[in-house]
Design a protein around this nucleic acid. Structure first.
Lengths: 199, 199
DNA sequence: CTCCATTGTAAATGCTCGTTCACATCGTAG
DNA sequence: CTACGATGTGAACGAGCATTTACAATGGAG
């Protein structure tokens, strides 16, 4: 047996990360069990020692994405107390996360990921809602502190915040990295700030 | 032969539309030749009378989306000369287009659609760029007319414009229609307006 | 009316891929 | 040290699906 044995816990993480990496280069279509396993250094069938089936593997990858997003929010709240600072840092972290793991948007926005899996779609929906809720909380904090305008709903602001990244991210990877996400995000951030800041 | 004969031109349109309809309910994964053909009222193999292979079928669907988007821009430019009006109407038309053809975002954002097809991805990129260019042109017109602020690039504004719809659209169909896109778009439109309007 | 190009069908092929099974090997508890 | 559970392997199966092929029906041009 050429491959070393490893704990299931370790393997699970490796497999989930392999899904993200592979999705980055080949999307969901080329995401076969064999490809995932090869990435880890496996035969295809070994994956079944750690997961019941492919769906469980994809679920693990999804959970990984969720934990990364939560970590970002926690980090910016650690770094600063200022609402605007928090939002800007979160924006930059979000972009970096996507740049480093191109597979994330490819999976999250891929419809094949959800087709035939209503529970997974529901879980994803709740995950995005939770993320938006945390952004909204930061915005509400800014409104109460008097930095941000009070005449809009924090939820709408949070949605717009997400809109700062999404089109840029899609264009970025459609252009094969040619499109400058970071620069564009900085530009639209200025517009966003003008929209939400107390005049 | 139970099925009536039809002109290739007619069939091509039917097939492309069938792709959009099917993608709406089952994503790209369930999008088999058999399913497409059945939707039209066909056997699977009959599709090959009109298209060389599946890739050509998907390309046709993509072209259909492009023509719909162009039609929207042309329509709003017909309806009014005012830049802000044009943008608002385009936003609403864009939303309606997506609500009526849920398959569009499912295809456009599905990475499987592009994986292994670099030319198609490039074509899509050019298509989005062209759309953004037209939005930017409307914005520039508004800047020259003095309605809109001059201190931001029209391209950035156009990107932000796209960001008004995208997250809302994704949440909409992830929530199975529960999320109110139109209401949210109206809210974020107010924010957008505050961001771009000449104070 | 009669060809024949066009449009359709059914059966068959070959490939990819998820999954199972029987067996080998590692590492650790006792 | 020894057994046994945990982990890994390769072969094989079966389903789904794109595509090809041989054949039938349609319908308009001459």
């Amino acid at each position: 047996m050429p491959t070393e044995k490893q704990q299931t816990q370790v393997r699970k993480e490796q497999i989930a990360q392999a899904v993200l990496s592979l999705a980055a280069s080949h999307g969901l279509r080329g995401l076969s069990m064999a490809a995932i396993a090869r990435r880890v250094g496996f035969g295809a069938t070994a994956v079944y020692r750690h997961f019941k089936n492919k769906d469980e593997v994809l679920d693990a990858a999804l959970a990984l994405v969720g934990s990364r997003l939560r970590a970002n929010v926690a980090a910016v709240c650690e770094e600063t107390d200022d609402a605007i600072d928090r939002l800007y840092r979160l924006l930059m972290r979000h972009i970096k996360l996507i740049r480093d793991n191109e597979g994330i948007p490819r999976i999250v926005f891929s419809e094949d990921f959800y087709s035939g899996q209503p529970q997974r779609r529901a879980r994803m929906y709740r995950g995005i809602e939770a993320y938006l809720g945390k952004v909204a909380a930061i915005i509400r904090q800014g409104q109460q502190a008097g930095q941000l305008d009070r005449d809009f709903e924090p939820g709408s602001g949070a949605l717009m915040f997400l809109g700062l990244v999404q089109p840029a991210a899609i264009l970025w990877h459609m252009s094969d990295g040619e499109f400058d996400v970071t620069r564009q995000a900085r530009e639209t951030w200025q517009l966003f700030l003008k929209a939400i800041r107390r005049n």
